[in-house]
Design a protein around this nucleic acid. Structure first.
Length: 414
DNA sequence: TCTGGGGTCCTAGGACCC
DNA sequence: TCTGGGGTCCTAGGACCC
């Protein structure tokens, strides 16, 4: 049997954790640049606020219902996530951290799962303050389904008999299935397939044809046959990306250079944290797709590197060369993306006999910068190309303190 | 004024190899 | 009438996840 443990309204729960006076009040968390709603407390959901709702259109509602608003604070969420996952790791021999707020537990061979699920819930809330739901079933797909079903009914659901599974899939909407997104849901519903049971009752040939191999796996899993194992190994990333909208649109190349240098620098840090090196750096500029009355463009380039690297200097240098190559005048850009692909482990980098390469010097420089920034805070030392003012930097008007990761932000008691 | 930021997997088609 | 049989790699596009 497999358990899926999912944190309830995770970002909203994190924000409220350090502000207990907000319990019982509607809380929303915004995306980067304070653009749209990406997390809601139950009270906010009850007000009818939808996932992805556009924030600037909500002004009246915020006032009327005294909704508490937060900019997203990934430093806080990442740290709270690690605490929750550490706590969960004690409950199973194999766990797979599936996302920032979800974890699969392999409960093979365990008995009295209902009681065990309650123990997991109580442990996490007691040790971290984050409420979770636990769904248990023979497969990952059914565990996801079980978890979603019990979000508002006690937080525990165990589907351990065929009869319980049959009843569950009959009322479960097809668009809520793990693996069915917007496009598939629309197609299936026009064909009269509305519930998980409807889908499960279709012939396998139909599934293979319409939903390809991943659909076949899902279909088998709905019948209780596990096809997606719990993967407790940490897979290496295949790509890393830093992409962010600016606080305002711009056509100014000097602004784009600053932003690109800054994102590339951040990307190189991610590479070093991942202990991998990039063999290809890609850069892409994007205009605002919502402004349909303005000319649109998204020029991009992929630059192969002569030597796999992860130091700040080489990554920034390459990204800026890419930016200059693709920049087109006459467009208002909203965002730049810098991506690293063809990743290889840092320890497996091959030397290149033909190219002169100053990497070691820059590698050392990056290591020193990382040490300083780790001690004194991100951005304490950075390269000049990133700029001083950073007028393009994203909006975070409602940012909460980094309660658990910054000494200056730690909670004080009287 | 204002609409997120990361990732993964699969398929089809084309170019190439022996 | 009729033109082999295996492969790999790459890219673009489309689907999905959180």
């Amino acid at each position: 049997m497999i358990a899926l443990v999912d944190c309830n309204n995770f970002y909203a729960s994190c924000e409220r954790l350090f502000r207990p006076e907000y319990n019982g009040r509607p809380v929303i968390v915004l995306s980067n640049n304070d653009g749209c709603v990406i997390a809601r407390s139950n009270e906010a959901k009850a007000l009818g606020i939808k996932m992805g709702a556009v924030f600037y259109m909500m002004e009246e509602m915020i006032k009327e219902h005294q909704i508490l608003v937060f900019s997203s604070n990934y430093t806080l969420y990442g740290d709270m996530s690690a605490r929750v996952m550490n706590n969960l790791a004690r409950f199973a021999p194999a766990v797979e951290v599936y996302s920032i707020d979800e974890c699969f537990l392999d409960l093979t061979g365990m008995t009295d799962l209902e009681a065990y699920a309650h123990r997991i819930r109580h442990s996490v809330i007691r040790n971290t303050g984050i409420p979770v739901s636990v769904g248990i079933a023979p497969t990952k797909t059914l565990a996801k389904l079980a978890n979603k079903m019990c979000k508002h009914t006690g937080g525990v659901c165990v589907l351990d008999t065929e009869e319980k599974i049959r009843q569950a899939v009959e009322t479960y909407q097809v668009e809520d299935l793990w693996g069915i997104g917007r496009a598939y849901a629309a197609k299936l519903i026009t064909m009269g397939i509305n519930t998980a049971a409807d889908l499960r009752n279709m012939p396998i040939g139909f599934i293979q044809e319409r939903l390809t191999i991943q659909g076949v796996r899902m279909w088998n899993e709905l019948w209780g046959k596990s096809c997606i194992p719990v993967n407790d190994a940490l897979d290496r990333k295949k790509a890393l990306c830093t992409s962010r909208a600016f606080s305002r649109l711009t056509s100014d190349l000097t602004v784009l250079i600053e932003a690109t240098a800054s994102y590339a620098s951040r990307l190189s840090l991610k590479l070093r944290e991942d202990k991998s090196c990039a063999t290809v750096i890609s850069v892409r500029l994007l205009t605002n797709r919502f402004k349909t009355d303005q000319p649109q463009a998204c020029p991009s380039i992929a630059i192969p590197l002569t030597h796999p690297v992860n130091n700040t200097h080489d990554i920034v240098h390459t990204a800026l060369a890419g930016l200059r190559a693709i920049y087109l005048e006459g467009f208002l850009y909203q965002k730049v993306e810098v991506m690293a692909t063809g990743l290889i482990p840092e320890s497996e980098v091959q030397l290149n006999i033909f190219s002169k390469w100053n990497g070691p010097v820059y590698d050392k420089l990056s290591a020193v910068m990382d040490q300083i920034n780790k001690h004194y805070g991100r951005g304490t030392v950075r390269i000049a190309a990133e700029g001083q003012e950073q007028t393009w930097a994203m909006k975070r008007r409602y940012l909460s303190p980094a309660y658990t990761t910054e000494w200056k932000d730690i909670i004080k008691t009287k």
